[in-house]
Write a protein that binds this DNA or RNA. Sequence first.
DNA 1: AAGGGCAGGTTGCGTGAAACAACCCGTGGT
DNA 2: ACCACGGGTTGTTTCACGCAACCTGCCCTT
Lengths: 155, 155
Amino acid sequence: MLRRTYDGQLCSVARTLEVVGERWTLLIVRDALMGITRFDGFLNSLPIARNVLSDRLNGLVDHGVMERVQYQDRPPRHEYLLTGKGRELMSVIVVLMEWGDRHLPLPPGPPAMAGHTGCEGTVRAELVCDSCDEPVPATTVALRVNAAATPNPQP
Amino acid sequence: MLRRTYDGQLCSVARTLEVVGERWTLLIVRDALMGITRFDGFLNSLPIARNVLSDRLNGLVDHGVMERVQYQDRPPRHEYLLTGKGRELMSVIVVLMEWGDRHLPLPPGPPAMAGHTGCEGTVRAELVCDSCDEPVPATTVALRVNAAATPNPQP
DNA sequence: AAGGGCAGGTTGCGTGAAACAACCCGTGGT
DNA sequence: ACCACGGGTTGTTTCACGCAACCTGCCCTT
């Protein structure tokens, strides 16, 4: 998705998108979170070109979202596993999924859900105010610039 | 970010990314959530080309994420306002921001935060299990295919 | 020993979307 | 008459994507 980079953008959103904002990247992460680990696995799951998949996996490894692990010797074969950093993208996948389910529904219903391992519950994302300490609707949330952290760009 | 579309992908994540997954789109939404409404406002905030901004705003209007509202007559001028559907993308922005703050930190600290309007609290995103009814770490969440909703592809 | 299959890529080529710059249009100010 | 402002549209170039072909190591069959 990114031609060059989002440089000049101090925002954490922009910096996150530099890692996962390219075309296919978040779908690769989604598949990894569903348990796919191998090159051909991603290739079968997504209508993506091999060279682009190779690019994206290398990028994710470079950014520490995935790691490349050898799983056999002869011939050497590796799989791509999410790191902790990568598994924490679960929140991103869940909110994207929820927004799609709510605003772009499919007739047969949601094709996938997030489940809590161990118990059979489903997992949802919530915005929580740490002062009220309870869930708040998205419409009562505002983005505020943190003045202390962006003093002034040097001339 | 998307060259063609993610067609063939039933997933809600893919369908959401068709709406907001292109380069710049989520940054435009972020700026809109921060209060920017006009063409030149976005242009000043982002290093984006005018034609690309025009494309993205039209796409967001087509998808019902924003609406184009006239705010003066002579000469006719309009502003771009988020719809309810658009404001619900706040969750997406918040989780992207949190992931960036945690895993790609900047020396001066987080450049922005999400705040609860009315009270002075800051807002965070949480994954909540509706069975346990309490927050769960991302690492204990798994994506499950909803078999009932994806019966079988026709042969 | 020759061939086929599988896993995991790399290479080369063509196209179309993004970046950039220039231009346009209607109005209001001087 | 001229310039500035807000809000775009129109070229032109460049680069990332999509596609197909090819390569490498190893194993299995004939």
